[in-house]
Amino acid sequence: MSRVLHVPFTGADREFDDIGQEMMAAIEKVFRSGQVMNGESVPRLEQSLAELSGRRHARVVNSGTDAVYFALVAAGIGPGDEVLLGDVSFVATLHAIVRTGATPVFVDVTDEGTIDLDLAEEAVGPRSKALVVVQLYGRMAAPDPVEKFARAHGLALVEDAAQSLGAEVNGRRSGTLGLASCHSFDAMKVIPAPGTGGVVLTDDPAVAESVEQLRHWGFADAEKRHVVRLGHNSQMSSLTAAVLAVKLAQEERWLKQRRATASTYSAGFGDLGCGLPEHGSLRENIFHKYVLRTPKRDELAAALRASGVETLVHYPYALHTLPFLERHPHRVVGDGRAKKHAAEVISLPIHPYLTDEEIAHVVTSTREALLAG
């Protein structure tokens, strides 16, 4: 009986085989410093992230969800306001908006899954105060039209760049759009934390100060003597920051490996008409996910599972269809492409530690499944 090759969706164990000694050394250094919280690794990581994005300020927090929420709060968003967003994203984007008390306004998406700015014109109303633009799957949307739209309508622009750390379009890095930008470091991201984490990036010192207060229980000073607002405990531990710094040093190498895998995939699927990601310059798409679109999604997922290939769906819902919204005010502009997107997308394994044999197996298995009927 022939062996079924197992192709994992993520490669955390292989990553540890590669750079585990460096990570453990960084962890030991933190423990020996006695500063497992608020140690020197935190501001060092913030400086590195600010430099990578080209922003003046970076504030790391406990999660990407908190990052988007804090950015919106810093922008003054609250009850009575409306926030525009595309109808395709991870639910965390929506959670952040709802947590502020604001009303989400779901705008249908383009064929690429990003917000349709033409429809967004119809969505703007007297209570519209912010736009959250989501950089989906590792590919950055063209910044100029988004920023122009936000300026024209007086909207605070928050970039949910959770999936696009390091991406770039026409010389603009992901993490530079609007009032504030947010990255995530959860276990599925290109630079994954040993758990979770996020960062708010901004050029506005008032936004940076607001996030500083929000992440530290509402304290207005480092000595934690004066509480000036309702805050949260959303700190990133020194241990997490130290490990992320080790991984951030691998970013260019890992990107090239992801890119090579994506190129092999696209060459193997190019004749099948299954909605391939576009390829441009090296950083135009960092391939946080490699996503195909096919009406035979469920059949493909079952066939790949039988072949030993792990897949996931990002995302199996249009945001406006989530049931908890029955208890929360919201508006929907356009209805169709987001639902179609949710019914057709499937994500293939793409991480820096896939072997040539595994990549070839994914290509062969995917081709066979899509051509089978």
Score class of each variant (00 low, 15 high):
Met1Gly: 06
Leu5Trp: 10
His6Trp: 08
Pro8Cys: 13
Gly11Lys: 14
Asp13Val: 11
Arg14Asp: 00
Arg14His: 10
Phe16Gln: 03
Glu22Met: 10
Ile27Ser: 01
Val42Gln: 00
Val42Phe: 01
Ser53Ala: 15
Arg56Cys: 03
His57Asn: 02
Thr65Phe: 10
Ala74Gly: 03
Gly78Pro: 01
Gly78Tyr: 10
Gly80Trp: 10
Gly80Phe: 11
Leu85Met: 15
Val88Glu: 01
Val91Met: 12
Val98Glu: 04
Phe106Pro: 02
Asp111Ala: 11
Gly113Val: 08
Ala120Met: 10
Glu122Met: 14
Leu131Met: 09
Gln135Met: 10
Ala142Glu: 07
Pro143Thr: 11
Val146Asn: 04
Ala152Met: 15
Asp160Asn: 14
Ala161Thr: 04
Ala167Arg: 04
Glu168Leu: 09
Glu168Val: 05
Val169Phe: 07
Asn170Tyr: 07
Leu177Asp: 00
Ser181Glu: 00
Ser184Pro: 02
Phe185Trp: 06
Asp186Ala: 07
Val199Gly: 02
Asp204Ala: 07
Ala206Leu: 06
Val207Thr: 05
Ser210Cys: 09
Arg215Thr: 03
Ala220Lys: 09
Ala222Met: 06
His226Asn: 05
His226Lys: 13
His226Met: 02
His226Ile: 05
Val227Ile: 14
Ser234Asp: 02
Thr240Glu: 01
Ala242Trp: 03
Val246Asp: 00
Ala249Ile: 06
Glu251Ser: 09
Glu252Phe: 06
Arg259Cys: 01
Thr261Ser: 07
Thr264Gly: 09
Tyr265Arg: 11
Leu276Gly: 00
Leu276Trp: 02
Ser281Thr: 15
Phe287Leu: 10
His288Trp: 12
Val291Thr: 13
Asp298Lys: 15
Leu300Ile: 11
Leu300His: 07
Ala306Cys: 02
Ser307Thr: 06
His314Arg: 15
Pro316Lys: 15
Glu326Ser: 13
His328Leu: 11
His330Val: 08
Val333Glu: 04
Gly336Val: 12
Ala338Trp: 06
Lys340Trp: 07
Lys340Asp: 01
Ala342Leu: 08
Ile346Lys: 10
Leu354Ile: 14
Leu354Asn: 05
Glu358Tyr: 13
Glu358Thr: 13
His361Leu: 09
Val362Asp: 00
Ala369Val: 12
